[in-house]
Computed example of a mutant assay.
Amino acid sequence: MIDDEELIPADLIGRRLLKATTAWHHYADDEPSLVHLWLHLEGLGPVLFHTPSTGLALRADQPHGPYSMEEHGSVSVADDSPGDPVTRFVGHPIRSVRQIHYNDGHVGFTAGLTLQFPGGSIRLLGLDDDLLIAHNRHLGAVEAHLHEDVTIARVVQTSGGCPSQWDAWTTTGQYLYLRYRHGEGTVEQHPSGDVDTWDGEESSLWTSWDDGTNGGRIELTDFLAMAGLQLAPDAEVHSTPPLVPKA
């Protein structure tokens, strides 16, 4: 992979985390703040997570060494720092990458990403030019304005087994294609359930995992749990599949 190559979230899915490198800005009187995060991913190399202003940017990039900043303290760089919550996922693949949206009624933007691993998940956020790693961490008042599109309002089973698959719509109206075959589960985002709309920029992979069973059947509740999705309390669920599943 070429340094400075821009990446998209779907590029990370299925990649095993080898190590994490963090760069911290140390000021004279304040607590250190996170400047950069590199995730070293199998088959992809180091990926830099940084915030240009708001939100996150991803690109292929080698970690920088420690350096001083005139009149602005210094930056230290460390691999797999014990205090870094990302390190607990070293050795595990990234199962899904989902966008985190910020909307306070006046301003709306994509604030960051949730990376889901087999053993849990972590949020990476870019807010007000600050890079934040949030694992089981409540961010205070800003939490009310953060949203992930993970709640299913309507789901229709289109095949009962080999593969198990469903058409689903989130509470915001986003269409998702859920599929499980040969032990592998995937969630794809598309503009609609019409397969003729699936080749554009609005289509992307959300989730992919392999449970090692080579199975072809899974219950909806188990699939959603593996994918990090949930049913709305009043979700409309149709479990009778048509005779012919999608290809």
Rank of each mutant, 00 (worst) to 15 (best):
D4R: 14
P9G: 04
P9N: 01
L12P: 01
A28V: 15
H36R: 15
W38G: 00
L39G: 01
L41H: 00
E42I: 04
L44A: 06
P46T: 03
S53C: 07
R59T: 06
Q62R: 04
Q62L: 06
V75Q: 05
S76I: 02
G83A: 08
T87Y: 05
R88F: 08
R95S: 12
S96V: 10
Q99E: 15
I100F: 04
Y102L: 11
H106T: 10
G112Q: 01
L113Q: 01
Q116M: 13
A134L: 13
L139P: 03
A141T: 11
A141G: 10
V142C: 07
E143K: 04
E148H: 02
D149R: 05
G161Y: 06
G161E: 12
Q165H: 14
W166E: 08
Q174E: 12
G185P: 02
T186F: 03
V187W: 04
S192M: 07
G200M: 07
W206L: 15
I218K: 03
E219D: 14
D222W: 06
F223A: 12
G228N: 13
L229A: 14
L229C: 14
L229V: 13
A232D: 14
A235P: 07
A235I: 04
E236M: 09
P241R: 10
L243W: 11
V244M: 05
K246M: 10
